[in-house]
Simulated assay, not measured.
Amino acid sequence: MKSRHALALPALLVVAIVLTAPGAQPASAAEEQMSKAEADGIIFERQNLMLQFDKDAELLGEIAAGLKPKDKLAEVTASIAETAAASKGAFEPRVPGGRAKPEVWSNWADYSRRLDDLEKNTKQLAEFGAKGDLTSVTNMLGGALQCKECHDVYRGPKKPA
């Protein structure tokens, strides 16, 4: 008859392999005990941040194209920077759902680096916006707001209504 320790060793090895697999991250106790309502709230917050970001980016594009007056330049670039700064924290809880692909968490190092770059770039964008420097804001747009490149990897398609 095998001892309990001899039987437990293979099970522990399986757990160790799973937890050390590339991209594997054990869920925290808080995440394991999160209610559906709490998870839905986190997803809702993330979606609202991204909707605000989209709305502000669209307005900024219209200002840069000369379709809207530049009197809102400082306000809209500040809002974009604030939203970018809040985005990483909104994704730190490992709560799948919305349009976020599982790769957000399995490739967290890359995803969080992209959010850090977004925050840094939009902060500079807001500094130019605060000065009313539309030329510098316009010149930075393509490099600062690389939404499509990130969405191609980390965001799923819209779900049918």
Results as ranks from 00 to 15, higher is better:
residue 46 R to P: 01
residue 19 L to S: 09
residue 49 L to F: 08
residue 72 K to P: 00
residue 155 R to A: 03
residue 142 G to W: 03
residue 102 P to H: 13
residue 75 E to W: 04
residue 146 Q to R: 09
residue 141 L to S: 08
residue 132 G to D: 07
residue 132 G to I: 13
residue 24 A to I: 10
residue 6 A to F: 13
residue 122 T to H: 00
residue 84 A to W: 03
residue 15 V to R: 04
residue 78 A to K: 12
residue 57 A to L: 10
residue 148 K to N: 09
residue 140 M to G: 01
residue 115 L to D: 10
residue 16 A to Q: 06
residue 113 R to W: 08
residue 78 A to S: 14
residue 77 T to D: 06
residue 77 T to S: 09
residue 151 H to I: 01
residue 102 P to S: 13
residue 136 S to E: 08
residue 6 A to K: 14
residue 58 E to S: 04
residue 62 E to S: 09
residue 114 R to L: 15
residue 96 P to C: 09
residue 68 K to A: 12
residue 126 A to Y: 01
residue 12 L to F: 06
residue 121 N to H: 05
residue 58 E to N: 03
residue 88 K to P: 01
residue 135 T to P: 02
residue 145 L to W: 02
residue 113 R to Y: 11
residue 121 N to A: 03
residue 101 K to L: 15
residue 50 M to D: 10
residue 28 S to T: 15
residue 90 A to Y: 02
residue 24 A to W: 01
residue 53 F to N: 05
residue 86 A to F: 08
residue 47 Q to V: 07
residue 22 P to W: 12
residue 59 L to Y: 04
residue 85 A to V: 02
residue 37 A to T: 13
residue 15 V to H: 04
residue 98 G to D: 06
residue 109 A to G: 13
residue 106 S to L: 13
residue 102 P to G: 12
residue 119 E to I: 00
residue 131 K to L: 05
residue 70 K to D: 15
residue 50 M to Y: 05
residue 1 M to Q: 14
residue 11 A to R: 09
residue 140 M to H: 04
residue 49 L to E: 03
residue 127 E to G: 00
residue 103 E to K: 10
residue 123 K to V: 05
residue 155 R to Q: 06
residue 153 V to C: 00
residue 17 I to M: 13
residue 124 Q to Y: 06
residue 149 E to A: 15
